[in-house]
């Protein structure tokens, strides 16, 4: 099959402290490419590989895009395809998308995640370290190696373990941010809150966690959720917006229970 690609090319990195839109766009622009003899069995990334092989032979710089595992689990890949992060299929990462999902002669627009918190590094590659910093702020259980008791000492109802798993399955791809009209990271952060909230091991730090994660998220310059549910729709792991509701509850709860004087958090260790 034959496809026409409209790909965002940008060689200079966007500056995170950017003030004007120009600082973000840099020399970026949409460039048009024609590709012929594409097999419907090809994955979307293999199609881009093919384009890059052709560009390289012509001595042009190949299109930079993130990827690693190519089986939908590492969360490295991800581009906006015709306005939809990870493309037309539900519950699918870009690397799991196959060309059979497109019509012969299709026009395909390929752009990077767009968010102030995700500056473009080059072409379709963005800097998602904001996610790591949010996790560093408290998406963990404070347990040192060796301090653990027997794994079966605390029973965890299957339902709770499953709820926790549904949130923990997040691959940190950033599609939720890319899809949200407000570039909000609430699905990602909510998933972290929900994961630990639903396990007994995570509960002792719940108040601390809710506040530090939300604070970190706000510091990174993500937008606010206005309940539009695009994130849930594009999430390759189909994480439900329920986790955002859970996070809202947790945040309010921790604020309400916060002791006025010291600002100390009950339960937490902040």
């Amino acid at each position: 099959m034959k496809v026409t690609l409209h790909i965002w090319r940008q060689s200079k990195a966007s500056t995170k402290s950017a003030s004007t839109e120009e600082d973000w766009r840099q020399d970026g622009r949409i460039v048009r490419y024609e590709l012929d003899e594409i097999s419907p069995a090809m994955s979307f990334l293999e199609m881009l590989d093919e384009l890059n092989e052709q560009l390289t032979r012509k001595g042009e710089e190949p299109v930079a895009f993130d990827h690693d595992c190519r089986e939908g689990i590492c969360g490295a890949c991800g581009v906006v395809i015709n306005g939809v992060p990870h493309g037309p299929e539900r519950g699918t990462t870009t690397c799991q998308l196959h060309m059979r999902s497109f019509k012969d002669g299709a026009q395909i627009w390929i752009e990077p995640w767009r968010a102030a918190a995700f500056p473009v590094v080059r072409d379709l590659v963005v800097d998602r370290s904001a996610f790591d910093r949010v996790v560093q702020a408290g998406a963990f259980v404070s347990v040192n190696t060796g301090a653990a008791q027997d794994a079966n000492a605390i029973l965890v109802p299957k339902a709770d373990a499953d709820r926790a798993f549904d949130a923990a399955t997040c691959i940190g791809c950033g599609a939720c941010v890319a899809a949200c009209k407000n570039a909000s990271a609430m699905l990602f952060v909510g998933a972290k809150v929900s994961h630990f909230l639903n396990l007994p091991q995570g509960r002792p730090e719940r108040e601390q966690r809710a506040q530090s994660l939300v604070a970190a998220m706000d510091r990174e310059g993500f937008g606010n959720c206005t309940n539009q549910y695009e994130c849930e729709a594009v999430c390759p792991k189909e994480i439900p917006v329920r986790v955002i509701a859970e996070m809202n509850r947790e945040f309010v709860r921790s604020k309400v229970r916060q002791e006025p004087a010291s600002g100390k958090l009950l339960g937490g260790h902040g």
């Binding site: 965002w8 766009r25 015709n82 009209k181 570039a183 729709a233």
Partner: peptide, 20 residues
């Protein structure tokens, strides 16, 4: 205002899946 700032560059090709 904050939401506007959170997305400095708009998508060239807009797409919406479920948002009303």
């Amino acid at each position: 205002r904050a939401n506007k700032q959170a997305r400095p560059v708009a998508y060239a090709k807009q797409g919406t899946v479920v948002a009303t």
